[in-house]
Design a protein around this nucleic acid. Sequence first.
DNA 1: TGGTTTGTTGCAGC
DNA 2: AGCTGCAACAAACC
Length: 258
Amino acid sequence: MPEGPSIVILREEVAAFTGKAVERAEGNSKLDKSRLVGQTVQSFRSWGKHFLIELDDVSLRIHLLLFGSYRINERKQSSPRLSLGFANGELNFYACSVQFIEGPLDEAYEWSADVMGDAWDSRAVLKKLRARPRLLACDALLDQTLFSGSGNIIKNEVLFRTRIHPLSLIGELPAAKLRELAKEVRVYSFDFLRWKREGKLKANWLAHTKTTCPRCKIPFVKAKSLGRSKRRAFYCERCQKRHGDSEKVSVNAPVAEE
DNA sequence: TGGTTTGTTGCAGC
DNA sequence: AGCTGCAACAAACC
């Protein structure tokens, strides 16, 4: 479910509830759900993997994490974390994180970091990346403050497309390569969105879960837990160039600034 | 068949 | 104090 493009799809699927009042709010979330009843949906928004329901005096932030799911005008057997009833149907969320966000959403998030968003600004992320030269490429692509909405699939695919080895140091990438990286995260995320809608997401993976490099045909490296983020990685040692050596860390050096 | 995972948080222990 | 590793969530997928 849960990388940024999947949340864009969710946002579109619930559009019929925009402007409708919450008539019923229940579920096993510990939040005070009674507060929601009577409030009107001002908008459905998303910031990366965060699905946002903007109501009259508060917003809801729903994060599907790894196992979360939702149903529109349907119910699963398991009990919902949050179920919202409207005059024209209902929206049910399962196994997710639900939080209130007080105050305007425009102040709660840095919108330029949302890879799928209209306010995406690659210059802003490049500035942040330049400030963290010791950061590994594989960790940069999972850092939601840099690339909000990018997840492990997007990480593996973007590193393969740009031919960047996941253990490259951000500070060692040539300027043009860094710009290419920032640009490709957004380009691939929209490819992901289109392929997911068409039901062809997996069919278009070049690296994620693959065993052989489609370019040079040698076996991919399958790493179980790479980088600080300790997530699995699929990459080609031959055609993904390793910029800098992340192993070279002097014991006496000052604490590495990422 | 059953181990793995498109993710994040909080907490225990060190 | 600040880190690391684990549990929790709970279901589709290979």
